[in-house]
Amino acid sequence: MGSLGGIPLYVLEFGDELVYFSPYTITLFLLALTFTLLAIVSRPERQVDVAFGGDAYTTKIISVDEMRFRRFMAIACGLASMGAMVTGDVFNFTLFTAMVGITNVGIVAAVKSPHVQDAAYQYGLVALSATVPLFGAAALYAAATGSLSMIELAKGTLPAVPLVAKALLVIGVVGEGMAPFYAAKAEMFRAPGAPYVIMCSLSSLLIFLRVAEVVMIG
């Protein structure tokens, strides 16, 4: 553990449940917190679109109802991301990751555009499918090592985590967090409502960064 994200600065134990702050997890946690605060205080931008073949342009305005819903989902996404960053338990990490996937769908599905909704629907199917390898990986971690605690796994005293469990965990995270990287569906990450769309990108990247640490443990 100490050789990956730095020596844990503070560990909070709830029985088997662990929350720990290392230099790495605290960096990621603070970023999730910062962007969540930005999502709370920012109003959405008015995206300008230039009409093809002329000088005309239009601006997209987000209704108050849509803004409220997407802001709520962005805050929920931020909270889930913060949880995923500091948890020291593999199962909790998968739970938070699944929640990030659900809230990401919510952030983009609320946009009143058929193209964005179509992209959100397809992403939703991917995220739904990804829960199988995601939770399967957590089950394999528990079955193979007898523990889900990252600190216990990092000690090296438990049996090694099977490679297939790590692979399934990565596949699950990729599926849940692929919203902003789903290049064929750019409608999602160029949709209006920058503070909320950014939360979508940020949460996905954060869980990618955290899973890189998780799979190197054990």
């Binding site: 994200g5 730095g6 230099p23 970023l31 990247l205 960064l209 890189a212 640490e213």
Partner: peptide
């Protein structure tokens, strides 16, 4: 410190 933090920040620069 950890290389993981520096390259984590590199990726966050994309966001």
């Amino acid at each position: 410190g950890s290389l993981l933090i520096i390259f984590g920040i590199y990726m966050l620069h994309k966001i």
